[in-house]
């Protein structure tokens, strides 16, 4: 499948390229915008893993929600504070250790996973109904806990916003 290979590499390049910009850019707003493309690329790769629901959710939550939030905070503060993002090296040893641990973990997972490479175009079936069923049967408790936590966060946010208004 020539076309699919091209699209796959397209998404890979987008993801890797924009994450490099996120890490190396000195302009914090540009870094934030590059993060958007990284999220987008990851969504594309999810589709190749046949996780269509997660891909669309990635777009909705990360691009539509979290990205806008990050951009809001970056845009509204960068002009006022006028501080450039720090790009120097501060704590070399802990940084190397943590990065090595994470990198090693990723490589280890990559090696032990039994990759089922499929050269044929697989039958695309939606994962949404199965995810829904699992969430309401086997994983009901985590699902409910997550909802309660989100509700608490929502009420908390509303409380903070209200208090500020009174002062």
């Amino acid at each position: 499948m020539e076309l699919y290979t091209i699209i796959f590499y397209f998404f890979t390049v987008i993801t890797l390229g924009s994450t490099c910009i996120v890490v190396f850019s000195r302009n914090i707003v540009r870094a934030a915008f590059a993060l958007l493309f990284a999220f987008f690329g990851v969504a594309g790769i999810y589709i190749f893993l046949l996780a269509d629901f997660i891909a669309v959710t990635q777009l909705l939550i990360y691009v539509g929600g979290i990205m806008v939030l990050i951009l809001f905070s970056v845009m509204l503060t960068s002009h006022q504070i006028n501080v450039d993002a720090k790009t120097g090296v501060i704590q070399t040893l802990p940084a190397i250790l943590i990065s090595a641990c994470i990198g090693g973990g990723l490589v280890w997972v990559f090696w032990i996973t039994d990759w089922k490479v499929n050269s044929q175009l697989p039958i695309v079936e939606t994962t949404a109904p199965k995810i829904g069923e699992m969430l309401l049967t086997k994983y009901l408790l985590p699902f409910e806990v997550a909802s309660v936590i989100l509700l608490v966060a929502l009420i908390g946010a509303a409380m903070i916003a209200r208090r500020e208004k009174k002062v």
Binding site: V29, D52, V56, L60, V63, G64, V68, V124, E125, T126
Partner: peptide, 25 residues
């Protein structure tokens, strides 16, 4: 003809937001 059409439409709208924010900034 994807099975998540309606969901995808809601998600696609968020790109327009980013474009407008980017233009504004």
């Amino acid at each position: 003809n994807i099975n998540l059409g309606a969901f995808f439409l809601v998600a696609a709208g968020s790109f327009v937001v980013i474009g407008i924010l980017m233009a504004g900034w």
